[in-house]
Design a protein around this nucleic acid. Sequence first.
DNA 1: TGATGCCATAATATCGAGTTTATCGACCAT
DNA 2: ATGGTCGATAAACTCGATATTATGGCATCA
Lengths: 227, 227
Amino acid sequence: MRTASDAVGQESSATHRAYLALRRMIVVGELQPGEKLKIDRLRTLLDTGASPVREALSLLTSDLLVERLDQRGFRAAETSRENFVEILTLRCELEEMALRQSIANADEAWEDALVLSHHKMVREGRGDLEAFEERHKAFHMALLSNCHSPILMKFCSQLYDLNIRYRYLAGKALDYQKRDVSTEHAAILEAAVDHDADLASERLLNHYRQTGAFLNGLFSNPGSQDV
Amino acid sequence: MRTASDAVGQESSATHRAYLALRRMIVVGELQPGEKLKIDRLRTLLDTGASPVREALSLLTSDLLVERLDQRGFRAAETSRENFVEILTLRCELEEMALRQSIANADEAWEDALVLSHHKMVREGRGDLEAFEERHKAFHMALLSNCHSPILMKFCSQLYDLNIRYRYLAGKALDYQKRDVSTEHAAILEAAVDHDADLASERLLNHYRQTGAFLNGLFSNPGSQDV
DNA sequence: TGATGCCATAATATCGAGTTTATCGACCAT
DNA sequence: ATGGTCGATAAACTCGATATTATGGCATCA
């Protein structure tokens, strides 16, 4: 019983919709770390069947956003400082690798797409946080997208999602309001279009490490968020 | 209707069994690259229901061993020289990273486990090829296992499986019969227990690159296998 | 004769029910 | 009183069936 009107979403499949919805809910923290994910509750929440939910949870398990317990169902992945540090470290390693390859393969089409994604991110502004985060990820992925290594891209994308989850958990991307990340983004973009791999890598990694150090501090006194 | 006797397999779940079985079949080539994976056929083949098969295929999609077609089901992942080169490159990068961290964290327990896994691999011999490959993977993973980075381990494990698939496809691990890989393994082990990260990395990467160059040659004239 | 639209077939994707398994509280034995 | 076992409840897991969607052949029309 599906009307022709919602055929516009070219990705029409209950499983895929459930996957996107659940991933979003986990990333932004609507589903808390360690929270039990009961099929029946999610089934009613997403208004779909049990099969799509199970399949989506299986996929999220491979993304490390969901953990599968022996025969006891699923739960949202736990968080920990060790996990956070691991993600940050791997992200720095893999993204530097991808960025350098991207720059080595630089061509006009890539640079155009890169500038465009940066522009879209700037234009979006901070009005809608989730929309901005979408653009933000698009920009960072665009930096790497010319590495011609789909597997590496997949890894970077996964690590990005794992990381952004910590940002949300720390309190609605608090860091953005204190630091001037716009300047950092512009600087990274500039170095990339100049094909300066060393400078671009250095700026990208500093970008991550500053955010990382900030978030890492929150593990000690998580009550310091006052807005 | 399950007897108590087959409770010995502590991982008793139709989904997990289907996952292992299908992964094995794809890796060793019983399911060819690009082959359509019809649910019904696999269902009868594995003697299980459709749900476990679907869930297993979903998981394998995240392992990059299965591709999901829009709304047209699943197929075994395609192979290509580009894909092979990418896997080899990433493997070298990530495993060197993991190996160096492993050695940096070296302790007795790790060295013991490492020596043991090497011994088991040697003892297994080439009688049962699949059993040997099992030990072989265990040895290589043991080298990396002390890096204290579960995500990195997961990536390396995935890449290992993707790579070994090409070995099987090239013709039943032909390379092992021509080169003296035993000596190479022993040399890697020696450098690792000596905590010589540079030497161990160099030997490990040479190990991979030699195998890689050999397999890469098979893409040009795949008919050269004569046994 | 070639191309196009339609219909039959087959396979997928989804749903709802039944079965197996874990959890938790109560009860009994020590 | 404490430890262990048993039984009721709830949940996950699995199965069979239905509905939806793609595919390939056939008829029709230009």
